[in-house]
Amino acid sequence: MKFHLKVWRQKDANAPGTLENYEADNIPADASFLEMLDIVNAGLTGKNIEPIQFDSDCREGICGSCSLTINGVPHGPGRGTTCQVYMRKFKDGDTITIEPFRAEAFPVQRDLVVNRSAFDRVIQAGGYISERCGSAPDANSVPISKVIADEAMDAAACIGCGACAAACPNGSAMLFVSAKVTHLGLLPQGKPENGRRVLGMVRQMDEEGFGNCSNYYACEAVCPASVPAAFIGRMNREFTAASVKEIVGMNV
């Protein structure tokens, strides 16, 4: 297959950057999007042009590194990460625009590579359980209803890829934060710190410069882990409850 690429090239974090045109020729239909970029890069190296820089790691849809935006949609067409997009999804001869994730809290480092460490700092502000829980307990020694376990699992599916914030017109990371708050908050090991967790994580999210949610739901549409936006509603509720406790002077 053959494609016309328009790729964002940016020398470093402070350079302005522009879209450059490249041709992708002889691409197998079953190549993944990242493999297509590898083929293009091999060609560029031969012509003494700096290869296009992009992030990737597992290439099997679980690590969330492959952050880039295809034709205005983070991770491109369909559910799933960029590494799980196959070129057969496109039509032969298509023009494909590739841009880095856009959100002020994810500064572009180079070409398509952004710095997503803001998410790490949000996790450090409460996305964990402090007490050691020991080794895996025997099955059913801590009873958890199926409904709760399923809900927590759906939230735990978040891979921290950042597509939600990159898709959001407000650059808001609420889907990510709500996934963590829900996943840890529903389970008995995480419950004791629910209030602190939601206060800490939301405040850190604000401090990192992520936007506020306007309930556009673009996040939910691109999330490769299908995290539902209703978790944001749940987080709003928890945040308000914890704030009220804090305001009236109760222990949170």
Binding site: K6, L19, T69, N71, G72, T97, E99
Partner: peptide
């Protein structure tokens, strides 16, 4: 904003 803007379900 993205140059190739897409409203994505909004």
């Amino acid at each position: 904003k993205y140059i190739a803007a897409d409203p994505i379900k909004t």
